[in-house]
């Protein structure tokens, strides 16, 4: 295949040098680890033509690393001009978490979405929604208020 393009074939030494170079560049000037997830989030916002809610309370929720024991319940609030969403996340300690949420707008359901594109849906009853046991990890909420712009929260860690 390379011959028909007039390419000199690579030998073993070339291949190893390129491998070494790749590892070297990855150490010295790595692609930021969060970049693919940020790209995916931007694409979701664009696809939904959504309004991104602002994180109001507990900015620690966004910066909390994976190393820390996620054993504490945390509460975060997200807000746009028209909607506030408050969520309390209580890790169960078995790799799942319970998410209790409250909404200030009309909506039939709330979506809990993941950077990998999967999502789960919970019904909203009187402004309240619950995800009883969802896998821990990065996630964001998507709300479709009828007749209004879709609202999406920044990614937070369950």
């Amino acid at each position: 295949m390379s011959d028909e393009l007039g390419l000199a074939p690579l030998d073993e030494v070339d291949m190893r040098l390129l491998e070494d170079l790749r590892e070297t560049v990855d150490r010295l000037d790595p692609c930021p680890a969060g970049l693919p997830d940020r790209v995916k989030f931007a694409l979701t916002v664009q696809a939904l033509q959504a309004e991104v809610a602002e994180l109001i309370g507990r900015p620690m929720a966004l910066t909390r690393g994976g190393d820390e024991e996620p054993d504490q319940t945390m509460t975060v609030t997200f807000s746009t001009d028209s909607v506030s969403i408050m969520v309390t996340v209580g890790p169960a300690g078995d790799g799942t978490a319970r998410v209790d949420g409250w909404l200030t707008c009309e909506a039939d359901e709330v979506q809990l979405a993941r950077p990998d594109g999967t999502s789960e849906t919970a019904a909203v009853r009187e402004g309240r929604f619950v995800f009883a046991a969802v896998p821990t990890g990065p996630a964001y909420l998507v709300v479709h208020p009828p007749g209004e712009r879709t609202v999406i929260t920044p990614t937070f860690t369950l």
Binding site: V25, P36, V39, K40, A47, G117
Partner: peptide, 20 residues
């Protein structure tokens, strides 16, 4: 739709290096 996320994961490191 999920395939787009997979594509982002696959190609972003190369694209980063092209930009750099």
């Amino acid at each position: 739709d999920q395939a787009l996320g997979e594509l982002v994961d696959l190609a972003t490191p190369l694209l980063w290096n092209v930009a750099r």
